[in-house]
Design a protein around this nucleic acid. Structure first.
Length: 821
DNA sequence: TCCCTACCGTGATG
DNA sequence: GTACATCACGGTAGGGA
């Protein structure tokens, strides 16, 4: 049989002592294909230098004789070949040692303790990754495959008859073909339960949403007929019905939100309690969970995607949302919110409210479904670019993604993969001293007019490429042709001969530029946008990757040198900008803000061109924008300019605020709103007059308690378990109070509280903490002194206005007035 | 008891 | 499973006066 096919889900099994890959995917007719394949299994033994032919031959003979008997599986080294390879850029002689089973590679590596062998590599990739590298069956691309169709065959122990697929193919050939649009079958799901802790309460309902399919399954409430709602007898039947629908719909993706950490483990736990099998897998198997800090739930044959995880790695740093709750994320991506419903224990839900609860539950799945469709192009491109299955790329952090990209591109450089760091090595790396990071210019506080901002495109990425900075190009002792830079009082040297890491990164940056250019011509091209985005993220993460202690290609020297070269260059550019007659007012890492000093925008752009022609390597400056005004303030402690805090307004009146309390979620809404408004007024008007009137109004309102309590709620994240805090800060007290109220608090939870008036005089803020629904009056003095004034004071200071004095004056005059009356 | 400083902790920038 | 360093600023802990 021959068919086209998009591989989506990969796993492997053993049959007669050998490894087989099982790939589930779909063809263009919408049929579900399960393809089985195998590949060579091997590891590398890198030989010491200057071994004679004789010695190598002898060694080969010894290795070929290795036999294993581990865990009842008898295997042996099948074949050994000698190859000319590269390892960390150096050419080496290496033995390719073939084995029967991937799981035996570790054991074989342990047996290779011959003095002729320098290093053993390539046995810690995982079989799926190894297979993809070996056979080039890259996830999410389209292939034409051929092979025998298995139908009730004895082969693989009769697996084909158990496995739910339209075709079960023993793959004999595969070739990549031109891609066309692929619309996967998605099923979104969401559960509602009585308790938050996994398995503690009953599952009340499950909602399922797919293309033209909406359903809530429940065993609660009287069986009033409501469209989309299906009633079952009890929780056990609910679980079985859920599995039944999943099987019937047979989706490519089962998508949830925080479903790795909640929905799926909850379902599993309740299934165990009810003694029901949660047969979600295509072969009737139950979901499997990985142990670890963060759980992941895998379903055989269906790709389980927890959207929260992908959103966290791919988007969160560029998002506006203050939390990654479904409500906020859906609002930002789709402009849709969750339905309003006050969640409570089922025993407290009145008969008439159940319908609302069902709607709420169903709508959550609708949001998840729509979210999936929205971010699907990015998921698909990530998978294609990193060449790993969607299950992995949707969960991996960016360091893992960078590493996947590297591993899948090593062969072009004839490179043997480096190993993962062992436990002790990770410890050593973590204990290493921090290196110096970016340069930040200390601004002189003030309101400035006519500002231009330049920044370096992919600054650190371009630096790595320009100066060839990587583990394999780092020179312990400088040789002939090298780049060098000073960092932390020592000189770091890197060979000029291009290394594979900078070379790969160069390709990434070039591709990113190419797709970005194409996107400019055709802004609606979703695919190009996704691809451009994937390469952008990859380029941006590569610097952090080299400094990351868990990286295979970790190089603190390369990371330190990257920061050092970037620091040096930006200082030189600031110098050049000054020589041209402009005045730099601020700079942070890769951007420079300067006054254009009565010159025209055209002149500035010409200067930019001139600058670019003088920059080394692939370093490139681009125009960030021209701005009408900009404001820089002092730090609250000391009279120097605050870094990482400024506000800009462009010619269209568009405002950009960085670092100010306005953009920080741990300040109350009132303080943030007032500061935001004042910044806007000051930037619009160019003076403080109107802003002053406004702030006085607000202060007045606050004193008269005309501000709603909701505006004064402070939100802070609990970053670790309550017991681990050394300092008992207000948010820790609030978290403790919530626990006492029966709300389990875990790290990552957002704590909300306000500061209240107290009968006795209390010194510490934490003694005045109350939960939002706790009775009490808000503490006007606190909000005045610790929220509003701190947020606006130094803005007025720029104009020589001391807000404190004005308030004091007012008090004095009022006192006088009182005396008169 | 008050005051000062070191340190903790969160959440920003890039 | 976990990319990096820099920075502002509120708050508490804890010592000295």
């Amino acid at each position: 049989m021959e068919t086209d096919f998009i591989p989506l889900d990969y796993d492997y099994f053993d049959f007669q002592g050998r490894n087989f890959i099982r790939i589930i995917g779909r063809n263009s007719e919408g049929k579900r294909i399960c393809a089985v394949d195998s590949c060579d299994v091997y590891l590398w033994a890198i030989l010491k230098e200057n071994l004679s032919k004789e010695e190598i031959k002898k060694l080969l003979g010894k290795i070929e004789k290795i036999e294993l008997d581990s865990k009842g599986r008898k295997t042996k080294v099948e074949k050994v070949e000698l190859h000319e390879k590269n390892f960390l850029g150096k050419s080496v002689k290496a033995l390719k040692i073939f084995a029967t089973n991937y799981k035996d590679l570790h054991e074989i590596a342990n047996r290779l303790d011959f003095p002729e062998i320098e290093k053993r590599r390539g046995y810690d990739l995982g079989f799926v990754t190894h297979y993809i590298i070996e056979k080039k069956i890259i996830p999410s691309h389209r292939y034409s495959i051929s092979g025998d169709v298995l139908n009730n065959s004895e082969e693989f122990g009769g697996m084909d008859s158990v496995f739910d697929a339209d075709f079960f193919i023993k793959m004999s050939e595969a070739k990549r073909i031109e891609d066309k649009k692929f619309a996967p079958k998605i099923l979104a799901y969401d559960i509602e339960t009585d308790e938050i802790k996994i398995g503690d309460g009953e599952i009340l309902m499950i909602s399922l949403v797919s293309e033209n399919f909406k359903k809530v399954i429940t065993w609660k409430s009287s069986k009033k007929k409501i469209s989309n709602v299906e009633y079952v007898k009890d929780e056990a039947e609910l679980l079985e019905k859920f599995c039944e629908y999943v099987k019937k719909i047979s989706p490519d993706f089962l998508a949830g939100y925080f479903s790795d950490g909640f929905d799926l483990p909850y379902l599993k736990a309740r299934a165990e309690k009810n003694e029901v099998k949660l047969a979600l897998g295509s072969d009737g198997s139950e979901p499997r969970f990985s142990r670890g800090i963060e759980m992941t739930g895998k379903i055989r044959g269906i790709v389980h995607v927890d959207l929260l995880k992908f959103i966290r790695t791919a988007y969160s740093q560029y998002m506006q949302s203050e939390t990654l709750s479904l409500n906020e994320v859906a609002n930002e991506f789709l402009g849709e919110k969750k339905k309003d419903f006050q969640l409570r224990h089922s025993s407290k839900i009145k008969e008439g409210d159940w319908e609302k609860y069902f709607e709420y539950n169903l709508h959550d799945s609708v949001l998840v479904f729509n979210l999936f469709e929205k971010i699907w192009p990015d998921i698909l491109e990530f998978s294609k670019v990193m060449q790993e299955p969607i299950f992995e790329i949707s969960r991996n952090g960016m360091s893992k993604n960078v590493e996947s990209y590297i591993l899948h591109n090593l062969e072009r450089f004839n490179e043997i993969p480096e190993k993962k760091p062992m436990h002790d090595e990770i410890g050593e790396r973590m204990n290493r001293e921090k290196y110096e990071g970016a340069f930040v210019f200390e601004p002189i506080p003030g309101l400035y007019e006519d500002i231009c901002i330049f920044d370096f495109t992919s600054s650190y990425g371009s630096t790595i490429v320009t100066y060839n900075l990587s583990k394999s190009t780092f020179l312990e002792h400088p040789g002939k042709d090298f780049y060098s830079v000073e960092s932390g009082g020592e000189k770091l040297h890197f060979a000029k001969k291009p290394g594979f890491f900078p070379e790969m990164l160069k390709e990434i940056i070039e591709k990113r530029k190419e797709y970005k250019r194409e996107l400019k011509e055709n802004p609606d091209d979703v695919l190009k946008k996704a691809r451009s985005n994937a390469f952008k993220l990859l380029a941006n993460a590569s610097y952090g990757y080299q400094g990351f202690f868990g990286a295979r290609y970790y190089s603190r020297e390369a990371a330190a040198a990257t920061a050092a070269f970037a620091r040096k260059l930006i200082k030189e550019v600031i110098e050049l900008i000054g020589e041209e007659g402009y005045k730099t007012i601020y700079s942070d890492t890769d951007s420079i803000a300067f006054l254009i000093n009565k010159k025209t925008e055209k002149q500035v752009l010409e200067f930019l061109k001139k600058l670019n022609s003088r920059l080394p390597g692939i370093m490139e400056l681009e125009l960030e924008g021209f701005f009408k005004r900009g404001l820089w303030v002092t730090k609250r402690t000391g009279n120097i300019g605050a870094k990482k805090k400024y506000a800009l307004i462009d010619k269209n009146g568009k405002i950009k605020i960085r670092g100010f309390e306005t953009v920080r979620r741990d300040w109350c809404r009132l303080a943030r709103k007032v500061q935001d408004k004042i910044l806007r007024m000051v930037l619009d008007d160019g003076n403080e007059k109107n802003a002053l009137v406004y702030v006085k109004e607000i202060l007045d309102k606050l004193k008269k308690r005309k501000i709603e309590k909701l505006e004064l709620i402070i939100k802070t994240q609990l970053k670790k378990p309550i017991s681990e805090y050394k300092n008992v800060s207000p948010h820790v007290i609030a978290a403790k109070k919530m626990e006492e109220a029966g709300i389990p608090m875990r790290q990552g939870n957002l704590v909300e509280y306000y500061i209240a008036e107290t009968k006795e005089k209390k010194k510490l803020v934490r003694e005045k903490v109350k939960l939002p629904d706790e009775k009490g009056e808000y503490n006007t003095e606190y909000y005045l002194e610790h929220q509003i004034l701190p947020a606006v004071e130094n803005i007025f200071q720029v104009f020589g206005v001391e807000l404190n004095e004005i308030i004091e004056e007012k008090k004095k005059s009022q006192n006088k007035l009182n005396r008169w009356m």
